[in-house]
C-alpha cells in the first residue's frame, strides 16, 4: 500500500504511515497481514530514579544529626536543652526545602504561609526556652505580617495573571508600611527611640516609587510612553 499523503510505499506491516501518521486505508482492497520487523510488544524497561526514595534518603540523612545532638545533649546536660534548637532548625529547613518536594505540584500559596507559620513556632520555642519576652510583642507580629504580605503577593501572582504594574506598586506600599511597623514594634518591645523616626526614609522612598507605579498602572497613555522611552 502507498501513503496517499507522502507518496511512499509502505511495508505490509504498517497500519499507519510512519512518516505522517495517516491511516492506511483503501475502500476496496483488504489490508495484507504481515509481521513487523521488531517485536513491538517487548518494550525494555529501565530503572529510573525514584523521587520518593531520594526524599526518604534526605529525610533519613537529616535525622542523623538530630538524633546525635539529642543523645549528646541528654548525655552531657542530662536534659533536653540546646538540642531543641538543632531540631527546630532542621525542621524549619525540612518544611521549606523538602516537604513541598513530596507533592506532585506543590502550591506555593499553601507552602509559603506554612513556612512562615513554622518560623513563628520556632521563634516561640526559642522565646520560651530562653525565658525572654519578645515573642508576642515583636516576633509574632513582625513575622506574621511579613508572612501575610508575601503570601498575598504569591497568591495574586499565581491566580491573577495580569495587572503586574498594580502588584509591583502594592509591593512597594507594603514594604514601606512594614518598615513603620518594625520601628513601632522595636519601640514598644525594646524601647529603641530616635529623634526623627528612621522608618520615614524607606517609607518615603517606597511611597514615591509605589505611587509612580500606580500612576503608570492607571494611565494607559503614560504606560505606552514609558514603554516607548525605555524599550530595550
Amino acid at each position: 500500500m502507498y501513503c496517499v499523503k507522502c507518496g511512499v510505499e509502505l511495508d505490509d506491516a504498517e497500519k499507519v504511515c510512519p512518516l505522517c501518521g495517516l491511516k492506511v486505508y483503501h475502500p476496496d482492497l483488504k489490508l495484507e497481514e504481515a509481521k513487523k520487523s521488531y517485536p513491538i510488544s517487548k518494550v525494555p524497561s529501565y530503572e529510573t530514579v525514584n523521587k520518593q526514595g531520594i526524599l526518604l534518603l534526605i529525610t533519613a540523612a537529616l535525622m542523623v544529626p538530630v538524633v546525635i545532638c539529642i543523645l549528646c545533649d541528654i548525655a552531657i546536660t542530662g536534659s533536653f536543652s540546646w538540642s531543641g534548637y538543632v531540631l527546630g532548625g532542621i525542621l524549619l529547613f525540612y518544611v521549606c526545602g523538602v516537604l513541598p518536594a513530596w507533592f506532585k505540584n506543590p502550591n506555593p500559596v499553601i507552602f509559603v504561609p506554612a513556612f512562615f507559620a513554622s518560623v513563628i513556632v520556632f521563634l516561640l520555642y526559642i522565646d520560651i526556652a530562653t525565658g525572654d519576652e519578645w515573642f508576642l510583642s515583636f516576633a509574632f507580629p513582625a513575622v506574621g505580617v511579613l508572612g501575610i504580605i508575601v503570601t498575598a503577593i504569591t497568591a495574586v501572582c499565581r491566580y491573577v495573571k495580569k495587572g503586574y504594574w498594580f502588584i509591583a506598586s502594592g509591593c512597594f506600599f507594603a514594604i514601606g508600611g512594614y518598615t513603620v511597623l518594625i520601628e513601632f514594634l522595636l519601640y514598644i518591645t525594646f524601647g529603641f527611640k530616635t529623634h526623627i523616626p528612621w522608618s520615614i526614609y524607606p517609607l518615603t522612598g517606597c511611597v514615591i516609587i509605589g505611587g509612580a507605579l500606580l500612576v503608570i498602572a492607571i494611565s494607559k497613555p503614560l504606560r505606552r510612553r514609558v514603554q516607548r522611552k525605555f524599550f530595550i
Binding site: 501513503c3 507522502c6 507518496g7 511512499v8 510505499e9 509502505l10 511495508d11 506491516a13 504498517e14 499507519v16 504511515c17 510512519p18 512518516l19 505522517c20 501518521g21 513487523k36 520487523s37 521488531y38 513491538i40
Partner: peptide, 26 residues
C-alpha cells in the same frame, strides 16, 4: 515527531525517487 524523516523522504519523493518505508511504530 517524525518531522525530519518525513521532510527528507518527501523531498526525495518529489525528485522522483521511489521509496518503501518500514518502521517499528507502535
Amino acid at each position: 515527531e517524525s518531522e525530519v524523516e518525513r521532510e527528507f523522504f518527501c523531498f526525495l519523493r518529489s525528485l522522483g525517487i521511489k521509496i518503501k518505508v518500514e518502521s517499528n511504530k507502535r
